[in-house]
Design a protein around this nucleic acid. Structure first.
Lengths: 215, 215
DNA sequence: CCGGATCCTGCAGTCCGTGCAATAATGCAT
DNA sequence: ATGCATTATTGCACGGACTGCAGGATCCGG
């Protein structure tokens, strides 16, 4: 029985059983941290509680995450899957920078990976616990820097210029706004992607207020 | 001698000597925290060092700031002076929303209040210490919410709509980008205000790529 | 000058986070 | 399968962050 408290453990592609078990415990820790934090509030949850819920020692907890907040946030993710990055660098899917950035940062696959409940839980904590918000925003800044590099590459530049960074900041801001609105009212009528596109339209409207309706 | 380690103490307008002394010690704590953090790195600086440098006990430190990071960041400031807010709400100075937001958030007066060195010191820490960055970004989110409320008021709305929040996010992002570039190269040739306006132009260029040059 | 309110301070305690060294588990080659 | 090298887990000890509490000092108004 190669499992850790119910979480499937199977050797994923490269890397043996060792890596798979590590990934499983990391997931376990994050899951336990989020559940306990939602239930009791982050301050009332000790690292000892999270660790024992995941079946490891407190010392091991700190081998996986630097801080309690980081465990709630979960392991860092790439800004987008490789396929999406390749497409973006090749000028796809539309050729328009802002639209392609929205497509690049489209988080629907992350939603599928963590599950709708997990993401809802995380955003719940982001909006309720200032420390989780702080960690979340810090990670967002790192993602913004990654996006700036990708924009530079797409434009054939070796290093991101000021404009690349501003464009990246705008794109990340639009996606963040979409997330926030989706979380505030996660009805099925307006899926996450639609919220993000709505935020993009609002940004365009700010800059082109006198624009005639396009369609 | 009503002073605290060289910081002037005079009863500011309303509030007696008590309030003035409190403000003085708060400033002292932030000044000491920043100086020590720049010198030794934030992790190597203990609250005890900061407290004794400011001439108060450790326990008193925590009466002024909730965390060590908060002391480095300094006391919270209003998003803009009252006069600038009134002007913004009245549709000034230009009538164009984005331009007026840039004017509203123009931080030149904060620069004058804290002094160029203090702000440079703070940004130095923001870029070097992840914990200070996290606190800084969290405060930025609060400011963004304030700005969204102001936008709503200017448009005659009681509550900020989705568009108000997106507009506020875009404006705060532009100002943040200007700050970042100014800090990366604080030459006198390109003052802070010019950097912010440059970032605003970059945002416009993202949305209106085919625009003919205006001037 | 005095009473009430407010602030400062020390103390004890909990929890976070880290270096270190011993132990246990794993992967690999034979 | 078995022994060996590598790596993960754990306990321990420690410093530092942060919080109630209670006693004492300071300030403000009369």
């Amino acid at each position: 029985m190669h499992d850790v408290q119910g979480t499937q453990v199977r050797p994923d592609a490269a890397g043996g059983l060792r890596e798979a078990k590590k990934a499983a415990t990391r997931t376990q820790l994050t899951t336990a941290a989020r559940r306990l934090a939602v239930e009791h509030g982050l301050d009332a949850v000790t690292v000892e509680m999270i660790s024992s819920a995941a079946g490891v020692s407190v010392r091991t907890f700190f081998n996986y995450f630097e801080t309690k907040d980081a465990a709630v946030l979960g392991p860092d993710q790439a800004v987008a899957p490789d396929a999406a990055i390749s497409a973006f660098l090749a000028g796809r899917p539309t050729g328009a920078l802002l639209d392609d950035l929205v497509a690049l940062l489209d988080p629907s696959d992350q939603l599928a990976r963590e599950g709708r409940d997990g993401v809802q839980q995380l955003f719940d904590l982001v909006s309720r616990e200032p420390r989780v918000l702080a960690a979340f925003l810090t990670r967002g800044m790192a993602h913004e820097a990654d996006v700036a590099r990708l924009v530079a590459l797409r434009l054939g530049l070796a290093e991101p210029t000021t404009a690349c960074r501003t464009v990246a900041a705008a794109a990340v801001t639009v996606v963040r706004r979409g997330y926030a609105e989706w979380f505030a009212d996660p009805g099925p009528a307006a899926p996450l992607r639609a919220r993000i596109e709505q935020a993009a339209r609002e940004l365009v409207a700010l800059v082109r207020p006198a624009d005639p309706p396009a369609d």
